[in-house]
């Protein structure tokens, strides 16, 4: 099952590679990853999408907690959360396709952020399904380039610190 995990970690060199190295070293999946500093510039917030059965997710949460640069781990699947992803899509447009591209962008409430005689760059924000749907619709026109931010997510209510299966996990050694 897919889990979105929010990880607060030290904003210093090496911290990201400790987390990335943990996933590759222990054979856990990373489906998406996004990191940026928080309001407190000494910390970063990472949103990590992974998958596995309950036992694997429990291990992932514990192993993340064990990383000394990791300050807090929250499995967002334990509560309601909002998730978003932004994509920039550069669509190849022949003169006869330009109107169609704009129409599609309009339907998805996407913005055209750049335009050239042969292309539009469309910015779309939404959950994964929405982003994938617009990509699918634009594909027949010809996508030249595609950049996605990776998913970010935030809980809809204040959450407790790291837990798995509704059971508190002690901060690791």
């Amino acid at each position: 099952m897919e889990h979105i995990i929010s990880v607060t970690l030290e904003n210093k060199s090496g911290a990201l590679s400790r987390v990335a190295g943990l996933f590759s070293g222990r054979g856990f999946n990373i489906e998406s990853l996004s990191v940026a500093p928080t309001l407190d510039p000494s910390m970063s917030m990472m949103t990590l999408v992974t998958s596995g059965d309950d036992r694997i997710i429990e291990q992932i949460l514990k192993q993340l907690n064990k990383v000394i640069d990791v300050i807090k781990v929250v499995d967002l699947n334990e509560s309601d959360f909002v998730e978003r992803e932004t994509a920039l899509i550069k669509v190849h447009t022949k003169p006869e396709d330009r109107a169609e591209a704009l129409r599609i962008a309009d339907i998805f409430r996407a913005n055209v952020v750049d335009s050239s005689p042969t292309s539009y760059t469309i910015e779309v924000t939404g959950d994964v399904k929405k982003v994938e749907a617009i990509i699918q619709l634009l594909q027949p026109l010809g996508i030249k380039e595609l950049v996605r931010t990776g998913r970010i997510a935030i809980a809809r209510e204040p959450v407790r610190a790291a837990s798995s299966h509704a059971r508190p996990v002690a901060k690791a050694t």
């Binding site: 291990q59 514990k62 050694t173």
Partner: peptide, 18 residues
Amino acid sequence: DIDPTSIRKNIHVDIPIV
């Protein structure tokens, strides 16, 4: 065990004590 990751890593545990 003092290391929570050791618990339930390989084997199901009925009473874990960190």
